[in-house]
Simulated scan of single mutants.
Amino acid sequence: MRILSLGLTLLLAACASQGDKATIDWQHYAQADTLDIFSPSFSHFEVVNPDQVVLWQSPNRAVLVTVIGACFFNDSSPVLRFTSGMSQVRRDHDAILYDNQRCPISRIQPLDIRKMKKDGVLK
């Protein structure tokens, strides 16, 4: 019985921690001005919705990229590439290559990391 109780506790804790990440309103922290071009050098990425991904360029710099249609169903794929390679990525021209899919980029928005930290969303 103790093992079952411990297992349920761990499962609930895992679900709770997943829920915290999913509750971030990324669009709220996206700046209104969109970028037409950006450099795709990033340290890691985070799938936040089926049609959005956050590219972290540094701990204090990130962009929210929106694609046309739902593309990010499998958030465990470790590789994200661009049709332009690692040169400049252009909105409405380039696409994200992810999990054997081609996802056209419709919007690139810088995130207000300072505001996210101030609001306690990020540490």
Score class of each variant (00 low, 15 high):
36 D>T: 10
51 D>Y: 08
99 D>R: 03
35 L>I: 10
89 V>C: 07
72 F>I: 04
40 P>M: 01
65 V>T: 07
79 V>Y: 09
73 F>V: 14
35 L>W: 08
40 P>H: 01
95 A>S: 11
43 S>Q: 15
80 L>G: 00
90 R>D: 09
55 L>S: 02
99 D>T: 06
102 R>K: 13
64 L>P: 05
55 L>D: 04
48 V>T: 04
16 A>R: 09
42 F>P: 02
65 V>N: 02
36 D>E: 13
107 R>Q: 12
58 S>V: 06
65 V>Y: 03
47 V>M: 00
33 D>H: 15
44 H>L: 09
42 F>K: 03
68 I>R: 15
53 V>E: 02
16 A>D: 12
103 C>V: 07
24 I>T: 11
70 A>E: 11
79 V>F: 09
57 Q>S: 04
92 D>N: 15
36 D>K: 04
28 H>I: 08
65 V>K: 02
80 L>S: 01
87 S>F: 05
63 V>P: 00
35 L>V: 11
81 R>A: 13
50 P>A: 15
77 S>D: 12
27 Q>I: 14
48 V>A: 04
33 D>A: 15
85 G>S: 08
101 Q>M: 13
60 N>F: 08
50 P>C: 14
60 N>Q: 13
39 S>P: 07
52 Q>N: 11
85 G>P: 02
98 Y>N: 02
35 L>M: 15
28 H>M: 09
96 I>T: 05
24 I>Y: 06
89 V>A: 03
40 P>G: 03
34 T>I: 10
67 V>R: 03
86 M>N: 15
38 F>S: 07
83 T>Q: 01
72 F>W: 03
104 P>A: 07
17 S>H: 11
87 S>N: 12
65 V>C: 07
27 Q>A: 15
33 D>R: 15
61 R>Y: 03
51 D>A: 12
100 N>R: 13
79 V>Q: 11
71 C>N: 00
84 S>P: 02
62 A>R: 03
20 D>A: 13
39 S>V: 08
23 T>C: 10
74 N>K: 14
83 T>M: 04
35 L>E: 10
91 R>K: 15
41 S>I: 10
85 G>L: 08
53 V>N: 02
26 W>K: 06
90 R>P: 05
93 H>P: 07
53 V>K: 02
82 F>L: 08
95 A>C: 08
79 V>D: 10
40 P>T: 05
21 K>D: 09
56 W>M: 06
78 P>R: 07
32 A>H: 11
84 S>K: 05
44 H>I: 05
39 S>C: 12
110 P>V: 00
95 A>M: 05
90 R>K: 15
82 F>H: 02
67 V>M: 07
41 S>K: 14
21 K>V: 13
53 V>M: 06
49 N>C: 09
24 I>E: 05
79 V>S: 11
69 G>D: 01
26 W>Y: 12
101 Q>I: 07
83 T>R: 00
88 Q>V: 03
84 S>L: 03
33 D>W: 12
78 P>I: 03
17 S>Y: 09
51 D>T: 09
